[in-house]
């Protein structure tokens, strides 16, 4: 078991996402530190992938920016190792199956653990294919995070029963990106998870405003935000850190009230 549970201890967790290397790894480092200081409870670090099929345009473009800047999986491991001196909250990688598979499953998990990561999210690895990755991850004490979607229905029980760390509840159909409204019955989704296993459930996809976050936190144990943050980074470039910090603070406050 990893340290992920600490993110949810006696509080609602705010979970921001950042694409590593967008606009540069130096800035990513500052963003991560600022997020931790501004109240983030767990951070998702995106390892960019050339063809991220679960992402909307905002994160797709961040991936392209990062890759054109020359970021690689090895450089990201080095960055994490360094940042771990200052940042103690749990962190998970979010990337695609091929980034891990192509690097070498054992080598990836060893390096991730050594760098100080706690878990990994692979949106293109569903329950049926999970074992291939999770069996290696667990050897190194990394949690492989399971996702459930609005279309999961009767699959929730099976997925949640074998989940580790927390369950990532995908709020809406479609890909990542800011949405004006979330229509899925999140309360029901979380209830199904809890009925299967006593594990934290965090909601992501489409959440951008403090109001939405507050609403989601009423049902779930945590709120995940990606595209809204990546948008701020895209807008302010290397000057983005104070803006990201301010945003994370406002979101954390909204879910704590």
């Amino acid at each position: 078991m990893s340290n992920i549970y600490k993110a949810f201890e006696n509080k609602k967790a705010f979970i921001p996402f950042v694409t590593c290397g967008d606009p540069s790894l130096e800035v990513t480092k500052e963003i991560i530190k600022a997020m931790a200081l501004s109240g983030a409870d767990l951070i998702e670090l995106g390892i960019p992938f050339s063809d991220p099929t679960a992402e909307g345009p905002v994160i797709q473009e961040a991936n392209i920016r990062a890759l054109s800047g020359g970021v690689t999986t090895d450089k990201i491991f080095d960055m994490v190792k360094e940042i771990r001196k200052d940042v103690k909250i749990p962190m998970v990688f979010m990337t695609y199956a091929n980034v891990v598979y192509s690097y070498g499953m054992e080598k990836f998990m060893t390096n991730a653990k050594e760098a100080g990561m706690d878990g990994i999210i692979l949106p293109d690895v569903p329950y049926e294919e999970k074992e291939e990755f999770a069996s290696v991850a667990s050897k190194y004490g990394l949690d492989m995070i399971s996702l459930i979607a609005p279309t999961s229905h009767e699959r929730v029980k099976m997925i949640a029963s074998s989940a580790e760390g927390f369950v990532y509840c995908v709020s809406s159909l479609g890909v990542t990106g800011v949405r004006s409204e979330i229509t899925t019955d999140i309360g029901k989704m979380v209830e199904l998870v809890k009925a299967a296993k006593d594990i934290p459930a965090a909601v992501g996809f489409g959440i951008s405003t403090p109001e939405q976050a507050k609403k989601m936190a009423a049902y779930a144990d945590g709120v995940i935000v990606g595209s809204a943050i990546v948008k701020i980074i895209a807008k302010y470039g290397k000057e983005c850190v104070p803006y990201v910090a301010e945003y994370v603070k406002s979101m954390k406050e909204a879910i704590t009230q």
Binding site: T53, P123, Y127, E128, E129, L147, I148, T151, I159, V170
Partner: peptide
């Protein structure tokens, strides 16, 4: 994975988002 379906040797499978499963 043992649960995996649609294999041709080691190839194939269903590496897609849960939303599509």
């Amino acid at each position: 994975s043992l649960n995996s379906k649609g294999r041709f040797g080691i190839h194939g499978g269903q590496y897609i988002p849960e939303t599509l499963m």
